[in-house]
Amino acid sequence: LRGKKKEELLKQLDDLKVELSQLRVAKVTGGAASKLSKIRVVRKSIARVLTVINQ
């Protein structure tokens, strides 16, 4: 992550946020259990990207 440019990080952040919103919709509509663990992974990925951006 640290080797990427800021523009790439921001694009990745947008993609992750879109994916997270889709997973939340799937959870509300009764999605599979595998998607519940994926939510945690995506949230941590967002946190990692934000950490690198803010450093």
Results as ranks from 00 to 15, higher is better:
residue 30 G to W: 11
residue 50 L to A: 07
residue 22 Q to H: 08
residue 10 L to I: 08
residue 33 A to V: 11
residue 11 K to Y: 00
residue 2 R to N: 02
residue 48 R to H: 04
residue 25 V to E: 09
residue 43 R to P: 13
residue 44 K to V: 01
residue 12 Q to W: 13
residue 53 I to F: 12
residue 37 S to F: 14
residue 13 L to K: 01
residue 36 L to F: 11
residue 44 K to F: 02
residue 55 Q to E: 08
residue 49 V to D: 00
residue 5 K to V: 15
residue 14 D to M: 15
residue 43 R to G: 11
residue 25 V to A: 06
residue 3 G to H: 07
residue 25 V to G: 07
residue 23 L to I: 04
residue 45 S to I: 11
residue 32 A to H: 01
residue 45 S to Y: 08
residue 12 Q to H: 14
residue 16 L to H: 04
residue 4 K to L: 13
residue 32 A to P: 05
residue 48 R to A: 04
residue 14 D to C: 13
residue 37 S to V: 11
residue 55 Q to S: 09
residue 17 K to A: 05
residue 2 R to H: 02
residue 35 K to T: 10
residue 21 S to K: 08
residue 55 Q to G: 11
residue 19 E to K: 15
residue 24 R to V: 05
residue 50 L to D: 00
residue 29 T to L: 15
residue 9 L to W: 11
residue 4 K to F: 14
residue 8 E to A: 11
residue 54 N to T: 10
residue 39 I to N: 00
residue 10 L to H: 03
residue 30 G to V: 14
residue 15 D to W: 14
residue 18 V to T: 12
residue 12 Q to I: 13
residue 26 A to I: 11
residue 31 G to R: 14
residue 54 N to H: 10
residue 12 Q to E: 03
residue 19 E to M: 15
residue 54 N to S: 09
residue 21 S to I: 02
residue 17 K to G: 04
residue 39 I to S: 01
residue 7 E to D: 08
residue 36 L to T: 01
residue 46 I to F: 12
residue 29 T to E: 01
residue 9 L to K: 03
residue 52 V to Y: 13
residue 48 R to D: 01
residue 42 V to D: 02
residue 25 V to N: 07
residue 1 L to Y: 13
residue 5 K to G: 07
residue 12 Q to D: 08
residue 50 L to T: 02
residue 44 K to C: 02
residue 29 T to V: 15
residue 23 L to H: 01
residue 51 T to G: 08
residue 25 V to D: 04
residue 48 R to P: 00
residue 3 G to W: 13
residue 41 V to G: 12
residue 41 V to P: 01
residue 24 R to Q: 15
residue 36 L to Q: 01
residue 26 A to Q: 05
residue 39 I to T: 02
residue 18 V to D: 07
residue 18 V to P: 03
residue 46 I to V: 09
residue 37 S to R: 13
residue 47 A to F: 04
residue 13 L to Q: 02
residue 44 K to S: 08
residue 23 L to W: 14
residue 35 K to Y: 10
residue 33 A to L: 15
residue 51 T to M: 09
residue 17 K to E: 03
residue 44 K to A: 05
residue 5 K to H: 01
residue 3 G to I: 12
residue 25 V to W: 14
residue 14 D to A: 14
residue 17 K to T: 07
residue 23 L to E: 04
residue 47 A to W: 07
residue 2 R to D: 06
residue 32 A to E: 03
residue 53 I to A: 02
residue 9 L to Y: 02
residue 32 A to D: 01
residue 4 K to E: 02
residue 34 S to F: 10
residue 45 S to R: 09
residue 28 V to N: 03
residue 50 L to C: 12
residue 20 L to P: 04
residue 21 S to M: 08
residue 28 V to H: 03
residue 45 S to T: 08
residue 19 E to L: 14
residue 14 D to S: 15
residue 45 S to F: 11
residue 31 G to K: 10
residue 3 G to Y: 07
residue 53 I to L: 09
residue 23 L to Q: 07
residue 48 R to T: 04
residue 34 S to L: 09
residue 6 K to Q: 05
residue 5 K to A: 12
residue 14 D to T: 15
residue 2 R to L: 15
residue 40 R to F: 09
residue 53 I to V: 07
residue 52 V to C: 13
residue 2 R to S: 05
residue 8 E to Q: 14
residue 52 V to N: 07
residue 37 S to M: 13
residue 22 Q to P: 05
residue 43 R to W: 14
residue 18 V to G: 10
residue 6 K to V: 10
residue 21 S to V: 05
residue 44 K to Q: 10
residue 31 G to W: 15
residue 34 S to T: 11
residue 12 Q to L: 14
residue 47 A to M: 12
residue 36 L to N: 02
residue 38 K to F: 06
residue 49 V to Y: 08
residue 31 G to H: 09
residue 50 L to Q: 01
residue 30 G to P: 06
residue 44 K to D: 06
residue 36 L to I: 03
residue 4 K to C: 11
residue 21 S to L: 10
residue 42 V to L: 08
residue 29 T to R: 01
residue 17 K to S: 05
residue 6 K to Y: 05
residue 51 T to R: 12
residue 38 K to S: 04
residue 40 R to L: 12
residue 40 R to E: 03
residue 40 R to N: 09
residue 18 V to H: 14
residue 55 Q to H: 06
residue 34 S to K: 13
residue 11 K to P: 02
residue 35 K to M: 13
residue 49 V to H: 03
residue 16 L to G: 05
residue 39 I to F: 09
residue 55 Q to P: 01
residue 9 L to F: 11
residue 48 R to K: 11
residue 17 K to M: 06
residue 22 Q to T: 10
residue 3 G to M: 14
residue 17 K to H: 01
residue 16 L to W: 13
residue 2 R to Y: 09
residue 41 V to M: 12
residue 31 G to P: 09
residue 16 L to M: 10
residue 12 Q to N: 07
residue 8 E to R: 15
residue 22 Q to N: 11
residue 20 L to D: 06
residue 32 A to L: 15
residue 3 G to L: 09
residue 25 V to F: 09
residue 31 G to C: 13
residue 14 D to P: 05
residue 51 T to S: 12
residue 21 S to T: 03
residue 54 N to F: 09
residue 7 E to Q: 14
residue 38 K to M: 06
residue 1 L to V: 04
residue 54 N to E: 01
residue 8 E to C: 10
residue 44 K to I: 00
residue 24 R to L: 15
residue 54 N to D: 02
residue 29 T to D: 02
residue 37 S to K: 14
residue 12 Q to P: 04
residue 54 N to R: 13
residue 29 T to F: 12
residue 26 A to D: 03
residue 47 A to I: 04
residue 19 E to Y: 15
residue 10 L to K: 12
residue 35 K to I: 12
residue 39 I to M: 11
residue 28 V to F: 12
residue 3 G to K: 12
residue 42 V to A: 06
residue 38 K to L: 07
residue 34 S to D: 11
residue 9 L to S: 03
residue 51 T to L: 07
residue 12 Q to S: 10
residue 20 L to V: 06
residue 43 R to K: 10
residue 15 D to K: 14
residue 49 V to C: 08
residue 52 V to K: 15
residue 17 K to W: 12
residue 48 R to W: 07
residue 15 D to N: 12
residue 44 K to Y: 01
residue 55 Q to Y: 07
residue 35 K to G: 08
residue 46 I to Q: 00
residue 16 L to D: 11
residue 40 R to Q: 04
residue 30 G to A: 13
residue 18 V to K: 13
residue 38 K to T: 04
residue 13 L to E: 04
residue 40 R to C: 13
residue 40 R to I: 09
residue 3 G to Q: 10
residue 6 K to E: 01
residue 33 A to D: 01
residue 44 K to N: 02
residue 19 E to A: 15
residue 37 S to I: 10
residue 23 L to S: 13
residue 8 E to H: 08
residue 35 K to P: 05
residue 41 V to L: 11
residue 55 Q to N: 12
residue 2 R to I: 15
residue 21 S to H: 02
residue 28 V to Y: 07
residue 40 R to H: 08
residue 48 R to Y: 01
residue 49 V to I: 10
residue 19 E to Q: 15
residue 49 V to W: 08
residue 38 K to G: 07
residue 54 N to G: 13
residue 50 L to N: 00
residue 1 L to W: 15
residue 28 V to P: 01
residue 11 K to V: 02
residue 54 N to V: 10
residue 5 K to R: 09
residue 16 L to R: 03
residue 16 L to Y: 04
residue 46 I to W: 07
residue 45 S to L: 11
residue 1 L to A: 03
residue 37 S to T: 11
residue 7 E to A: 15
residue 19 E to R: 15
residue 22 Q to L: 10
residue 41 V to T: 08
residue 48 R to V: 00
residue 10 L to A: 04
residue 13 L to V: 05
residue 40 R to D: 03
residue 10 L to C: 06
residue 7 E to S: 11
residue 29 T to K: 04
residue 49 V to M: 08
residue 47 A to P: 01
residue 1 L to F: 10
residue 26 A to P: 07
residue 20 L to Y: 02
residue 18 V to Q: 08
residue 20 L to K: 04
residue 27 K to G: 04
residue 16 L to I: 03
residue 41 V to I: 10
residue 17 K to P: 02
residue 10 L to F: 10
residue 25 V to S: 06
residue 52 V to T: 10
residue 11 K to A: 04
residue 7 E to I: 12
residue 21 S to D: 00
residue 39 I to W: 06
residue 28 V to L: 14
residue 34 S to V: 07
residue 47 A to D: 04
residue 22 Q to G: 08
residue 41 V to R: 09
residue 22 Q to S: 06
residue 47 A to R: 14
residue 10 L to G: 03
residue 11 K to W: 00
residue 31 G to N: 09
residue 4 K to Q: 03
residue 31 G to Y: 12
residue 2 R to T: 11
residue 21 S to P: 05
residue 50 L to I: 13
residue 26 A to G: 08
residue 36 L to K: 03
residue 40 R to V: 06
residue 20 L to R: 03
residue 18 V to R: 15
residue 13 L to Y: 02
residue 36 L to S: 02
residue 2 R to K: 15
residue 16 L to A: 06
residue 10 L to P: 06
residue 15 D to T: 11
